[in-house]
């Protein structure tokens, strides 16, 4: 029994490693597939063929793709992600500088997402069909219909341009950490939260409604179990367990995919670096950032599986 469980988790771990490896091939293939020549791009339009060939050789671009992939992966595993074409700085240094900011933004949003999604979903679900629920349902439906850049823009229009309460850009002053100016985090966090919160509230609400109407909850009520115990022991676990994998995907998204929020507010995070690098075709930066985000996502999904299994007894003993 215990042995089987360990074997199962080892298999799951192996699958996650395989996924990550496949993702790395995908990242590498997509970035080297890019039309145009990296060496030519780097030297600008006036370089002669001689110079380009020389640079190609020194960059290793004249080697077959799978050799370059092997080199790249080997170095990446040792923390060396190459140097940025645009700035000439090591990619790992850029990531180290930006990752903290992204993590701060994502973690703040994530810390708010989980309790708010479960709380609001439960609150609305237990009042299904009443005015409070209709309000939450309509608001979340409106929110899931707005791409983040639209919501972010509207927030800026309201809180920065209109009311003047908060800054419209979130660039920390030179030499200062983001933590010294927490007010610049407010609008990016709200933007990040909007869509993911709306989606998850809807999910939890639907689960609560189903669990609340279930035979099991009715039996408990007909047996005189007090309402708060019915909610705590019957409704909540049944509603939250199926939401866990989805919540985890959104956490991964918050920690890795804050592309829009960072771009919109000029926040110095990883995703903003990725957008700049995509525009400039700065291949090493794109590779490094995507690989890191893929690793974070795969890890979080693995943790979500573990958590879902811990919460759901039926899945725990299923082979």
């Amino acid at each position: 029994m215990r042995l089987a469980r360990t074997a199962r988790w080892l298999r799951r771990l192996g699958a996650a490693a395989g996924t990550l490896l496949a993702a790395s091939v995908l990242v590498f293939a997509a970035t080297t597939l890019a039309p145009g020549d990296a060496a030519a791009a780097r030297l600008g339009g006036r370089a002669g063929p001689q110079q380009i060939a020389q640079l190609r050789h020194s960059l290793g671009l004249d080697q077959p793709a799978w050799v370059r992939y092997g080199h790249w992966l080997w170095h990446a595993l040792h923390g060396d992600l190459g140097t940025s074409y645009a700035s000439g700085r090591p990619v790992s240094a850029l990531i180290a500088e930006r990752a903290g900011n992204s993590l701060l933004l994502g973690a703040t949003a994530a810390a708010l997402l989980v309790p708010l999604a479960i709380g609001l979903g439960l609150w609305a679900g237990m009042r299904a069909g009443r005015a409070a629920d209709r309000l939450v349902s309509t608001a979340t439906l409106a929110l899931v219909s707005m791409p983040e850049f639209v919501i972010g823009t509207l927030l800026v229009l309201l809180f920065a341009v209109g009311l003047g309460w908060l800054p419209s850009v979130s660039v920390p002053s030179a030499g200062h950490s983001v933590l010294t100016q927490p007010q610049i985090l407010v609008l990016p966090v709200l933007t990040l939260l909007s869509v993911s919160l709306a989606q998850n509230v809807r999910l939890v609400r639907a689960g609560v409604i189903a669990a609340n109407a279930s035979d099991a909850a009715r039996t408990a009520r007909l047996g005189g179990v007090p309402e708060h115990r019915v909610v705590l022991r019957w409704v909540l676990p049944a509603a939250v367990v199926p939401a866990v994998p989805v919540l985890a995907r959104y956490l991964a998204y918050l920690l890795g995919g804050t592309l829009v929020a960072e771009t919109l507010f000029g926040y110095p995070g990883l995703a903003a670096a990725l957008v700049d690098a995509t525009a400039a075709r700065d291949v090493p930066v794109v590779q490094g950032v995507t690989l890191l985000v893929a690793a974070v996502t795969v890890t979080l999904n693995l943790l979500a599986d573990l958590l879902a299994a811990a919460l759901n007894p039926a899945a725990r003993s299923l082979s």
């Binding site: 998204y253 995919g257 794109v286 996502t297």
Partner: peptide, 25 residues
């Protein structure tokens, strides 16, 4: 299924950036 899993393991806007790098803006 594995191929779908690999694509799902990358957040949507990361896939977007990758494809745009590969095919151009």
């Amino acid at each position: 299924l594995r191929a779908a899993d690999v694509l799902l393991s990358l957040p949507a806007f990361l896939l977007l950036s990758l494809t745009v790098v590969a095919l151009g803006r």
